[in-house]
Design a protein around this nucleic acid. Structure first.
Lengths: 221, 221
DNA sequence: GCATCACTATACCCTAATGGGTAGTGGTTG
DNA sequence: CAACCACTACCCATTAGGGTATAGTGATGC
């Protein structure tokens, strides 16, 4: 499986919903002998399929995509048995995103605003099996590790089920249990159960805290 | 000033902090005879300088940039006397961003995830003096215009007394009446009264709505 | 095939928190 | 003095949150 030797270039699969950015990356990689763009995908689902078909050495994965988000895609890829390098490639420098990516088996986290030459350099490092993280994120990461000690249960969207996320969204819109129930066409009691569960999972003590957290974390998607 | 005739291509200045995306756009425009990339800038300040130096027919302007943000750059360009077309080019489909851009004199609002061919088509429309907006945003825009009419009583912090604002801040932090009372050293009953009053003044129906509104309006300062 | 687990949904019970109403006190200010 | 604000008190109906229990479904594992 070691394709990072001298004569064969490292194959790369790019999963990103921005066609223009894909062009930019494609053009960048064309100039490099040792890096080869093996495939592109504009949707996570297509990317996951291509990953098993092409079995690339590494995958560049956008974090912010419509529908299935980057973390979910990352999980799906690993669950599918993909063992190559996965590098998150995104604009988000939010601590939660970085931490969530690394926790879920990402081998790198590069920001889209980085210099192309620097990016090529970083991708070579990845091909060699090293972990890469955009320089501007290292401080943030250190912070995350520090706070990890003091806060063993950091709220994380990804610990919630789909239904719980739905409830959280409505809750963050200011709706009461009764209104949420009516909107989702379930009983109020059921809504209460979901609220109870998500509060426990997020380690919060009231719907107000949950709403505030959701709004600040941008869980309105 | 009319450079949109048949023989001379429309000149474009691209202001975006993502080098890779700039490459993608550059490559895309190279293929078109009637569109010419006159210059690129990775920072808003450089872009503003280039705008006056090159006086391009249109400017593609990223909304999310470090330091000076896109709206501020847009304002600066107009204040500087730039009279060409300015098209916001961004990933953000937030209503406020779109509205703010258009209010401040943008001639278009395109999303970065659009199809390259579609993008070229749109840019040609801009060169012809038309206003372009990504299709997926039209519904959102209609919504914005509608809500503008139907909300004669927009919640306003300034109708609140100092004390009520204090209470609102604590409420927006997720605190219960009891905790707010303890923190401000007053009885829970008093807190209830203040909450009651501020809900009435803001025309909201629950503390959750108030908390969400406060967070979104940035009343934590 | 069967056991198990996670998720969703429902029901019932109970306590605490919330929102609204009325009413009163003391202080400040126009 | 009247108007407003901050504060307190009491009552009442609704809402919210937690506990326990039951049940159907779909996915996973042996």
């Amino acid at each position: 499986m070691n394709r990072t030797d001298h004569d064969t270039p490292a194959t790369i699969l790019l999963i990103d919903d921005h066609p223009l950015l894909r062009r930019g990356v494609a053009q960048l990689l064309e100039l490099e002998d040792d890096l080869e763009l093996a495939g592109e995908a504009g949707e996570p689902e297509v990317g996951i399929r291509l990953a098993s078909e092409l079995d690339p050495d590494m995958i560049l994965l956008d974090l912010n995509m419509p529908g299935m988000d980057g973390i979910a895609t990352l999980k799906a890829l690993r669950e599918q048995g993909y063992a190559g390098r996965i590098v998150m490639f995104t604009v988000s420098d939010h601590e939660e995103d970085v931490v969530a990516a690394l926790r879920n088996g990402a081998d790198g986290y590069l920001l889209k605003d980085m210099d192309p030459d620097e990016m090529v350099r970083q991708l070579r490092q990845v091909a060699l099996g090293r972990m890469v993280i955009s320089e501007s994120l290292t401080a943030l990461l250190a912070e995350a590790l520090r706070s990890q000690r003091n806060q063993p249960a950091a709220p994380d969207i990804h610990s919630l089920t789909q239904r719980e996320r739905e409830i959280l969204c409505e809750l963050a819109a200011g709706l009461s249990n009764k209104l949420i129930a009516r909107k989702l066409d379930i009983t109020e009691g059921t809504v209460k159960v979901h609220v109870k569960h998500l509060l426990k999972k997020l380690n919060l003590r009231s719907r107000v805290e949950a709403a505030v957290w959701a709004v600040q974390a941008g869980v309105d998607k």
